[in-house]
Nucleic acid binder design. Structure first.
Lengths: 186, 186
DNA sequence: GTCTATAAAGCGATAGAC
DNA sequence: GTCTATCGCTTTATAGAC
């Protein structure tokens, strides 16, 4: 029974959860050492620039996941409607059916946005542009597609806020169903 | 020229801005003393329980404002459509046309929600119920009214996230226009 | 009521042994 | 690579003079 080696990549998902639950300011190194099981020595070995670098790596990891699992299918899927349906499935999965909040959304709301301005801006603009592209291929006019894309992405973010405020993940899932319906009624 | 007396009520709006901009964890007492111009002695004189009490007072202040300016008109306005239009005007005004985020929304996303669980839960449930009431009086069936109310409140919260992520308040104003249209198409 | 001084704890980050 | 010890600073909160 070989001891499981802890690699840098193994801690990134854990860091993601910590930042999601506490926000950037609230994610203390003590919370990070506790959750990851790694001492400060190991953490600073993996992430020499400390907390800033940890958050940056997580943001990069999230951006990669959405690019391959959501944005690319939206842009490239031959069947645009299938690409959109795929997005909603991926979103419900990623946000754990409303039990998990959006890391980039939490960073966007407070002064953390200024620290990661480019990453926060890119995430949401890539999302809305990819969705607008799919909606255009579904027959919507450029302007209508862009507006609907913004409404849907905002609707997802808002549903996460609302679901968490009510401690009711099912609220999120129901909201996703309705948003999905809206993208079908073209 | 009499010196302007500083009263407890005068600092509440300032505290609100600080919590909105930094979140609960990020709102340090040093930031609060700087913004309010009050020393720690005065702050703890006004708010003996410290930061927790300051945030609680702000939440209460926000709840009062929405109750009188938004929820009550939604529930009681003879002309339900006018009550809804009034809500959108009040919302655009309150959130400074997208330059200001929602305090309760920021509290809802991280572990701050647990500290103020009742206040966070009540704010959003009062909002959605008041809006659903107005939509019912506009002719929507109970279920459809409730769903639309959730979509609109979530849409507002998400538009705040999106607008701030893009540093583009106008995005918020445009989103409000479209949400308002949706409440008219009955 | 407002201030300064201070306490006690926690913070992010670093050094150096192993 | 991982640990412990520690640094310097900031945090929330309190005490007490005025």
């Amino acid at each position: 029974m070989t001891r499981k080696p802890v690699e840098r990549g193994d801690v990134i998902p854990l860091l993601g959860e910590i930042f999601r639950e506490h926000g950037y300011a609230g994610a203390s190194l003590s919370a990070i050492t506790e959750r990851t099981g790694l001492g400060k020595g190991s953490l600073y070995h993996f992430f020499p620039d400390g907390k800033d670098e940890m958050a940056r790596v997580v943001l990069d990891d999230v951006a990669d996941w959405f690019e391959t699992q959501v944005f690319a299918p939206l842009r490239d899927s031959e069947d645009a409607a299938a690409g959109i349906d795929h997005m909603f499935r991926a979103v419900v999965q990623f946000f754990h059916s409303g039990r998990r909040v959006c890391l980039v959304g939490t960073f966007a709301l407070d002064e953390t946005r200024d620290r990661f301005a480019v990453e926060v801006q890119s995430y949401f603009s890539a999302w809305t542009r990819a969705l607008a592209s799919a909606l255009r291929r579904r027959g919507l006019k450029t302007r209508h597609a862009r507006e609907t894309a913004e409404d849907v992405v905002a609707g997802i973010q808002g549903a996460l806020v609302l679901a968490r405020s009510q401690d009711d993940p099912a609220l999120f899932v129901r909201a996703m169903k309705r948003l999905q319906q809206r993208t079908r009624a073209v």
